[in-house]
Design a binder for these strands. Structure first.
Lengths: 217, 217
DNA sequence: GCGTCCATCCGTGCTGACACCCATGTCGTC
DNA sequence: GACGACATGGGTGTCAGCACGGATGGACGC
């Protein structure tokens, strides 16, 4: 490719954007051509301008980085996506990969690792943080070996609808009233969701939904 | 004072430290002379070296920025402390003031606001973020007018301990076993927390804890 | 047409969450 | 010493969450 890699930077914290920008701009082969303060803005910018690589924070208002990643990889197949996050967390890691990200970088890493991740992404290589993240890769590979693939949790549309409402804190009765169905049906759906996703109760369901970017914290 | 202000920078995210350092170093009157990756390290560094101003993140391993602030302002009265955080949160704001911080800066602010906060701190002026933080100040002033003082919505240490465990999805019985106390006491604490924070149930508690950064999603 | 998936609904029973009442002992403060 | 804040414990009662069993009807594929 001719010229430097054009990077879109999305993080709701100005100071973090500023720092990352300064780090990336120090490299001659990387150029930050756009910034965004939330997920929705990131999608806009990426669709509007010419961008090769999107570096997305996970926790952002309006639309999370995971939602944005799903949106971007679906609409702009040529675009590479790198997740940059503070969460050293297995669930997020998997969600990020499923959302189409080709790298997962912790905010606690050194500058050169971030730069390395950007370059790896452009070479279409997966990049995962050194150190603590090793555990993630191991568990990931184990799953592949076991043939689990990515355990495709197929919740139906209706179930996802109820999932969101449950995760937002509504009781069965409230949801029933909202959807004009019986509270019993809501409970039945909820039970199916819990079973499909391997979750214990609505509290775990909530955390799952927040991680998956289905609802805001 | 002769020479630039000597700044100690504490944040567990290398990339954030890097960014803030670059921003501060661009100012001739500010010099970052030390960095720390957690609260305990921050206290060590501040006590060892000559530091005029400590810029502390709130969410850090080993010792939080709030604990570090309390420690530092007690042991080193000449030292100014500035909290730098992602939490636009009334609770933390009050906690920071009580801990002796003379400023509260969000990571979402612009560079110049951070610099302004550092300078204000050195002039012994209180600094609070523009924008969203106005609401905090208003609410604070209202409380002062009502004569509430700093009316402690604050949860106690023990309560915060239980808060985290509840938000992580543990039942009363599990928490009781973990802490070697009765399940009844856990329920009592949980009820007090819900009442103090104005929350409905453990699900809202979880979302609160996630927003406040007390637990990961 | 038959099977499968999905959405809808019901009953029963257990357990935990939550609200309300209560008391005890230990602090530190005034 | 009295008082308040805190942590500890108990009792009782209501309600929602969740597991388990069942049933119906509609859509879609083969």
């Amino acid at each position: 490719m001719s010229g430097p890699v054009r990077v879109l930077l999305a993080d709701d914290h100005t100071l973090v954007r500023r720092g990352v920008r300064l780090i990336l701009e120090a490299e001659p082969d990387l150029a930050v051509v756009a910034e965004a303060g939330d997920g929705a803005e990131a999608v806009e910018r990426a669709r509007a301008g010419d961008v090769d690589l999107a570096v997305l924070d996970i926790a952002m208002p309006r639309m999370t980085g995971l939602q944005a990643a799903r949106e971007l990889t679906r609409r702009l197949p040529g675009l590479r996506v790198l997740m940059l996050t503070m969460y050293d967390n297995e669930q997020y890691f998997f969600e990020a990969l499923k959302a189409g990200a080709c790298g997962y970088v912790l905010k606690s890493v050194a500058d050169r690792d971030l730069v390395a991740a950007c370059r790896a992404a452009m070479r279409d290589e997966a990049f995962v943080c050194p150190g603590a993240e090793r555990a993630l890769v191991r568990s990931w590979l184990e799953r592949l070996h076991r043939g689990d693939g990515l355990p495709e949790r197929a919740v139906t549309e209706r179930e996802e609808e109820i999932l969101k409402l449950v995760a937002e804190g509504h009781t069965s009765r409230e949801i029933a009233a909202l959807l004009f169905i019986s509270a019993k049906t809501v409970e039945r759906h909820r039970a199916n969701i819990l079973h499909k996703l391997g979750l214990r109760d609505r509290l775990e369901l909530t955390r799952y939904a927040i991680r998956a970017g289905l609802v805001d914290p």
